[in-house]
Amino acid sequence: MKRELPIAITFICAFILTLQYFIPHRSFEIMYEISNIWIQIIGVFAMILGIISLIMLHWEKIKHKKENWGFSIVTLASLVGMSLVGLIASENSPVFEWLYNFILAPISATMFALLAFFIASAAYRAFRARTVVATILLLAAVIVMLGRVPIGSLISFGIFPKMAEILVNYPNVAAKRAIFMGVGLGAAATALKVMLGIERSYMGSD
């Protein structure tokens, strides 16, 4: 029961959901919509479970005064503060919006902006033109980057933007389509393995 029932549930749900795609009947459309809502509702509980785990993890760190436990207070305080404001007032309340606009949004934007530096240093290491393929990668990246900024057009008399356009519209599309087909086959094969109970890692260990 511990393993057989979940495999049976997975198979039945997967089989019905796969089947509904090929049966254009209103009842199957409704069933698909219901399953989408079920996923949303279970997903909410899964998210609450994740947040409880986060609280427990940081609470343990504070309780046992583990390394950097002071920062765990920051996490818990901000989590509780943000949640209380949003749940007591509303997600459209000025305070909640203020917290989003002046704390969450700048932090997220700056975190991603920080990646500009790391992506540049990673590029330096990865792009050293040691082989033909590395050189092709480097040239394509440089042309696309220069083709997207005014100075690229200025130093090449408009050639870089045109080259970037050709690279993006043709070889890039070809590469992406080949990758997508691989992804599609891989995703379908993995989904079939899960459906048939061959892939069971989602159940964890006993």
Partner: peptide, 27 residues
């Protein structure tokens, strides 16, 4: 495991035809 199995079942069931349609046939 039961709700997780349900999530996986619905997810993979919906993804098999969709991934074949979007990633292979349309391409």
């Amino acid at each position: 495991r039961y709700p997780i199995a349900m999530l996986w079942g619905i997810g993979v069931g919906a993804s098999i035809p969709l991934s074949l349609q979007n990633y292979i046939i349309r391409q």
